[in-house]
């Protein structure tokens, strides 16, 4: 608990501690990948769920990747399984929906999933 230091520094240190306690960048990249895959079909968002494989999987994979990003942030204990799943979903999206969000969403998801898988839990750092 940081009890010393100026009041202005406490929120920054708390934020730094928070980002260090979880795979922060993995969660951010994976959620961004989900958003790209989800939003890409829409120019005007008049139809949320388009028919066909691409519309359905774009919706499911995009929302799923967003959820995995949130899992990285708020349930970092399962980061390995979530990381592998995020990479699998991103690779599958290449075929099933708009070439993985024109490749951008797929690349973000692979990066985010791999980073999340490689993250080292600080509480177990001593035994690793």
């Amino acid at each position: 608990m940081p009890v010393s230091g100026a009041h202005g520094a406490v929120p920054t240190r708390a934020l730094a501690r928070w980002t260090r306690d979880r795979p922060f960048w993995a969660g951010l990249l994976t959620a961004a990948a989900g958003l790209v895959i989800l939003v890409l079909p829409g120019g005007r968002f008049t139809v949320l769920l388009l028919p066909g494989l691409a519309g359905t999987s774009g919706f499911l994979f995009g929302a799923g990747l967003c959820a995995m990003g949130l899992f990285f942030w708020f349930r970092p204990a399962g980061h390995r399984a979530v990381g592998v799943t995020a990479v699998l979903v991103s690779v599958a999206s290449l075929v099933t929906t708009n070439l993985g969000g024109f490749v951008v969403g797929m690349l973000l998801g692979i990066l985010g999933g791999s980073l999340g898988f490689a993250w080292e839990d600080p509480d177990q750092g001593a035994q690793a």
């Binding site: 990066l111 791999s114 898988f117 490689a118 080292e120 600080p122």
Partner: peptide, 15 residues
Amino acid sequence: RSTGRRRWGRFAALF
């Protein structure tokens, strides 16, 4: 130093 770090070997194993 050893907390919240990434194991780059594992990263490559998946990436």
